[in-house]
């Protein structure tokens, strides 16, 4: 069995604070972007910014950037199978013969 070193990687304080600043900045950007109409891209913009924030949290706060490959694979497969779930459900919804909704 392969083991990592006994010294765990310690991320410097400055990095944590920088990431926090970036996250706050991106939150402001999210709110600001919501005031602008990008048309069909609205959801994509909001989701894109959220994903940048998420990867900062995952990479630095959750130490994934310095972690072993397996933990990245685990979280990646969670996201992948979620997308799969979404994908196959939505292709059913969008390819159904349109019904006249009473709503």
């Amino acid at each position: 069995m392969a083991h990592g070193t006994h010294e765990h990687h310690i991320i410097p304080l400055k990095t944590y604070w920088t990431v926090f600043a970036a996250l706050i900045f991106l939150t402001v950007v999210t709110v600001a972007a919501a005031q602008i109409d990008f048309g069909a891209l609205n959801a994509l913009v909001a989701f894109g910014i959220a994903s940048v924030k998420a990867s900062l949290v995952l990479g630095i706060f959750m130490h994934l950037k310095y972690d072993n490959m397996m933990n990245r694979v685990i979280i990646g497969s969670g996201v992948f199978f979620l997308l799969l779930f979404w994908f196959f459900s939505i292709i059913d919804i969008v390819t159904r013969i349109p019904q006249n909704s009473t709503l």
């Binding site: 685990i74 979280i75 497969s77 969670g78 779930f85 979404w86």
Partner: peptide
């Protein structure tokens, strides 16, 4: 955490 993502994921889908 992977199971948590998939559980919340159901609501997101």
């Amino acid at each position: 955490l992977c199971t948590e993502i998939l559980m919340f994921g159901g609501l997101f889908v």
